[in-house]
Design a protein around this nucleic acid. Structure first.
Lengths: 153, 153
DNA sequence: TCATTTTGAAGGATCATTTTCCGCAATCAA
DNA sequence: TTGATTGCGGAAAATGATCCTTCAAAATGA
């Protein structure tokens, strides 16, 4: 069953602040705590809500550099994709990695401390993979928008 | 003050599951609830922890298509950047938007229902902006990795 | 139409967690 | 040694989550 309008309001609030109490959510949407609680549990059970996480300030933690990479594999073959996918899983600096359509194979989002740190990652980890043919790096100069909230309207 | 090793363990746990109780965290790192509670509050106060959110399953909510866009502005001028930045802020389907170095100006991450929905976004919203000269779209075929957890080791 | 079932919500009791307070021990500087 | 600071543990108080029962409205069926 898809979330109804009330469920969606709850999701919007929780996507913005998961520490909001059920009581607070209830008062915002003019309901008592019980139905709000039940709706949340239901959406958790049914997988609409996947998990609750905290978001950190990467700059304060010294991870000031954000880089997007385009990766082209040497050969578009099963073994290459498998090697690459497996390697990516073990790289904590890679936050996102997707196979994309277009003139390259992968799109990566990488978080590192600085350009030297990125160089280490680039030379010792990414280009060390035999499956990799070509890498283009795009350094983020300014983050205009950054949200984890998907539109539920 | 930077988080110490104990703080980092707490951050790793909270980045994975922010609903973990203080008691549970405490037992995992062999501490009582008081210091764990104090450390978390401190990291919230000092801004290392920015917010708590819930992550939704976009597919279950009908947002099955993920697209990365490269956008080139017509003119690299203050007014163009301002118009573009402002417009992006009002587009809920754009989850991330960054100014990048390289042969285009912006990198966008867009979430929509399907290709028709993307077409609407592309034609009616993005290319409707006078500041935009060129757009390249890269459709995500497969998400290999997707995490919000930045490395704190 | 009337009775029955189902669904969603409210209120209150109970349980768990968070938060606060206090004291203890280790470390460090004077 | 003394005094101050820091980090930790334990327990009480405050708050919130959860569970259970009841109620009302809508849907279902004879």
């Amino acid at each position: 069953m898809q979330p109804d309008a009330t469920d969606k309001k709850i999701l919007e609030l929780l996507q913005e602040n998961a520490h909001m109490t059920i009581k607070e959510i209830a008062s915002r949407i003019n309901l008592s705590v019980t139905p709000v609680h039940e709706r949340i549990r239901k959406m958790e059970r049914e997988g609409f809500i996947e998990k609750y996480v905290c978001l950190l300030n990467r700059r304060k933690l010294g991870k000031s550099l954000l880089v997007y990479c385009h990766v082209t594999l040497d050969k578009q073959r099963k073994e290459s994709f498998e090697e690459f996918n497996k390697a990516i899983a073990g790289m904590p600096e890679v936050l996102e990695c997707s196979v994309v359509s277009g003139n390259f194979d992968y799109m990566l989002k990488v978080v590192v401390s600085d350009s030297e740190d990125y160089n280490q990652f680039y030379q010792l980890k990414l280009s060390a993979l035999s499956s990799v043919l070509h890498i283009s790096s795009y350094f983020v100069i300014s983050e205009i928008k950054h949200t984890t909230g998907i539109p539920v309207g």
